[in-house]
Structure formats: C-alpha cells, structure tokens
Design a protein around this nucleic acid. Sequence first.
DNA 1: TTTGGTGCAAAGCGTTTGCACCCGC
DNA 2: GCGGGTGCAAACGCTTTGCACCAAA
Lengths: 142, 142
Amino acid sequence: MTIYELIEILKTNHYKITAQRKALLQVMAEHADTLLLVDTIYEATKKRYPKTNMSTVYRNLEILESLDLLHKVANENGAMQYKLICCHHHHHHLICSQCGKIEAIDYCPLETLKEIAADKDFQLTAHKLELIGLCKHCAKKK
Amino acid sequence: MTIYELIEILKTNHYKITAQRKALLQVMAEHADTLLLVDTIYEATKKRYPKTNMSTVYRNLEILESLDLLHKVANENGAMQYKLICCHHHHHHLICSQCGKIEAIDYCPLETLKEIAADKDFQLTAHKLELIGLCKHCAKKK
DNA sequence: TTTGGTGCAAAGCGTTTGCACCCGC
DNA sequence: GCGGGTGCAAACGCTTTGCACCAAA
C-alpha cells in the first residue's frame, strides 16, 4: 500500500495528517516487508521528523492497528513488533531470523487441518504457519 | 514427565531440591498440557508453598528452561508463558484460545515446506504450525 | 474555532538484579 | 561448613497515561 493510500484511509476515518504521522507512515511503507521493533520505528521516524516522541509513536501505531493497517506481534522476548498489512487474502510467511524480512507464500494446508481438528473435536478458528530461517542475503553473510 | 523424573534431572545437574522448587515442579506437572502465565504459576505455587516469592519463580523457570524442560513463549501482549516440554519428538499443536489447553498433533507438512523454501532460496531452520480454536470443553460452554 | 495530536513527565507492569541471609547437601 | 537458593527491595525496559499546550481542518 502506498503512503497516499494510507493517508486517504486516515482522512476517511477523520484522523488528521500531521508531519510526524506522515513520517511514521513513510517509515512503515519503506519497510513493508519487515517486522520492526517499536524502537526501530521510533529512530527511523526521528530521522524524518526529529521532534518525534516515543509516546506519539505508540499512539499512532495503536491507531493504525485499530484501522487494520498494521500487524502487531510480540517477539520472543515479549517486545512488540509491527509491519504494514500487505493484503487481506489468507497466506503464510517466510521469516528471516536474522533481519526480520518477511515474504509471503501461498501454500496452506487448511483442508488437512480441518480434518485433524474435526477428528479431535476441536473447533478451529485460526491457524498459523511460519517458516523461519535465513533469507538469501543473510545466508550469504554467514 | 513425572515430578520424580524432573527432580532426578535437577539432581543430576547439581541443583538442590528445595520445598519451593518442588512445589513449582508439581504445579508445572499438573498443568503439563497448558501454557501458563508466570503469575498463574506464582499463585499456584503459593498455594503449595505460601512463602513463594515471584523472583524465585522467575529464577526457577529460567533454570528449567535452560535444562530444556520448559517451553517458553510470549503471548500476544508480550507476557511470558511456560509449559513442560512433553517430549522431544517433532510435532505441532492444537491450542485452545479460551483456556490455553494444548494438544499435540502428528501432522507436519515439512516435506512441502522444504520445497517451498528451496524455491524461494530461503534456508529453512525451523517452522511453526499452530491450530487455534476452542477445545471440546470450552466450545460447549459458549 | 474546535477537536484531535503532541511533548513531557510520571506511572504501570512484567521482569531482572544486588545483596544479605538461609538451608540442602 | 560450603555454595547454591531465597526474600526483599530496588532497578529495569517497554508501554501507557494525564495534562497542558499545539496545530490541522
């Protein structure tokens, strides 16, 4: 999604477009394929808009998440990471454990999972499939 | 794994068996099929050993994790959850979103995942497949 | 002009740590 | 008795909040 589209969505939802908010959107759009720590987002936003404040970053991330524009997950230490939602069709991910880069894959074993859940008398509401490893770039470095 | 086996492993690794540590092991063994929040573990341990202290709980959980006896994950809010590792053979899980109960399943699409990773020039090191939903018991309640 | 956005500082919460004391071995 | 285990309190890192001020619409 482009920054312009994101801004339109914010306007439609009656949010004001401030310089800081725009800077944060640009940061998220530039790294649309990577899960970013809040602190990383903060530092990158500060480069574009030096007055950027951490609490404002948190507040804006929360707004974007509530509009279903951001995906939020806790990393293994419990710190929050965000990334722009790329699209709304169902898919899974390749995740680089080194740099956090994410790539979508289309494979999904849903039909099989449904059978397994039914066998176990389990009411399936969601599922998660993640492939963790090293992207081409990071594998080369090692 | 029984408490006796767990205690043996601790002894082998030169850890002392204290009343508090034993109480915590009993709690973990009683809920071997459930991801527990640290605070839940703390409260349950206190019932068995009232002097139980939160920092001791954390220190013991850390020891058990370092011995590869506990599985540690951050929940969606970033708080840590633990459960006894049931066995070391590879498998995935059904997870009840209501009560946290976990059940193992044997299905694993590893062969397919290997192909996908190879196609994308991605060096696969791990993968995660989780089925989220309601267990029989919680589905009935709703 | 109005109302939401922001900076700052303080509080909140889960987790870790330093230190003196305790207790299993 | 020794060395690891513990309780307590304080510090920690990340996140949230209250309030006065600022600026987009």
